[in-house]
């Protein structure tokens, strides 16, 4: 091995690795630094200058605004959506994976085909429907579209998962006196925990960052989710760059904190979620 220590790969690898590290992190550093500057500083000093002092006034200003309302809305909408996604998709997946009925194959194919439908096509009809239902400009307007657009991938992941549960467990449960509903609830649902975690992580992150439906189906800041905080603040502070970047930092923080706790799980969840057949 030591004779190879000077091969081109040994040099190229750290160089490339550090180069991309710079590409990835420099924008983040720019955001954080600038958000700690005063507005005057951004005009007077070059961008790469360190902030003259740690100035948290931008953050305070943002936090005293509606930031926590946006955060609360996001938490409510995403937790309700993910809960509904988990239950409905696991039920459907169980039927598609384990119950024998004639339409299982075609129905599975049809649901999975839903993964390539561009969501923006449904935007206008969903907007009209939401208006008609009287849900327009409420956080709850988002739950229906969020669940529906997450279902195809979730059903796909969980069906694949449940197909791998040994047939004998089902038979043992049958002998133990369970019907299809108990078999699902007592055996398949708890056994699908890893699959459910993947579904929750993938959809949770996707929906947490979702922009267009939230933008169209809600209009007042009291009812909007976190990604729109940036959008709304941007309108509000148009020229105050440090304040806008403070919002960018703050809205990105929750996911980054969650990510810091469970990186491996999140990376794997995002991958499994995107790797369709």
């Amino acid at each position: 091995m030591s004779s190879r220590s000077l091969s081109p790969g040994r040099i190229a690898i750290p160089v490339l690795g550090l180069f991309w590290l710079a590409v990835t992190t420099l924008p983040f550093i720019f955001v954080v630094f600038t958000s700690l500057k005063t507005q005057q500083e951004t005009y007077a000093n070059p961008v790469w200058a360190l902030p003259e002092s740690l100035n948290f006034s931008n953050y305070l200003e943002v936090l005293q605004g509606l930031f926590f309302t946006y955060l609360k809305n996001s938490v409510i909408v995403i937790s309700i959506s993910v809960a509904i996604i988990l239950i409905t998709s696991s039920m459907a997946a169980y039927a598609l994976a384990r119950l024998k009925f004639r339409l299982a194959g075609p129905l599975f194919a049809l649901i999975v085909a839903g993964m390539i439908v561009p969501l923006h096509i449904t935007l206008v009809p969903v907007y009209l429907m939401t208006r008609d239902m009287g849900l327009y400009d409420t956080p709850f307007a988002l739950i229906g579209p969020y669940v529906a657009t997450s279902l195809p991938i979730s059903v796909f992941i969980l069906t694949e998962f449940m197909r791998q549960v040994p047939k004998e467990l089902e038979e043992a449960a049958l002998l133990d006196g369970c019907g299809p509903f108990k078999i699902f609830w007592k055996i398949f649902f708890p056994l699908s925990r890893p699959g459910l975690a993947t579904v929750a992580i993938y959809n949770g992150i996707m929906l947490w960052n979702e922009f267009i439906f939230a933008y169209v189906l809600t209009s007042s800041p009291q009812n909007r989710t976190l990604p729109l905080a940036i959008w709304d603040f941007q309108g509000q502070y148009s020229a105050n760059i440090p304040a806008i970047l403070a919002v960018v930092t703050l809205t990105s923080l929750p996911l980054i904190i969650v990510y810091a706790i469970g990186q491996e799980r999140i990376v794997n969840g995002m991958m499994a979620g995107s790797l369709k057949g």
């Binding site: 239950i87 409905t88 998709s89 039920m91 459907a92 169980y94 039927a95 598609l96 119950l99 009925f101 339409l103 299982a104 129905l107 649901i111 839903g114 439908v117 096509i121 449904t122 935007l123 206008v124 009809p125 969903v126 009209l128 429907m129 229906g144 579209p145 669940v147 529906a148 657009t149 279902l151 195809p152 059903v155 019907g179 299809p180 509903f181 699902f184």
Partner: peptide, 28 residues
């Protein structure tokens, strides 16, 4: 009940997909 089971299990997901995915597609 065992004949109806697939329908019951699939109903919530299918209804949501019909309302929020298929209907908007056609309505578009």
């Amino acid at each position: 009940s065992s004949a109806l089971a697939p329908a019951v299990f699939l109903a919530p997901a299918v209804v949501l997909l019909l309302v929020y995915l298929l209907y908007p597609l056609v309505d578009s």
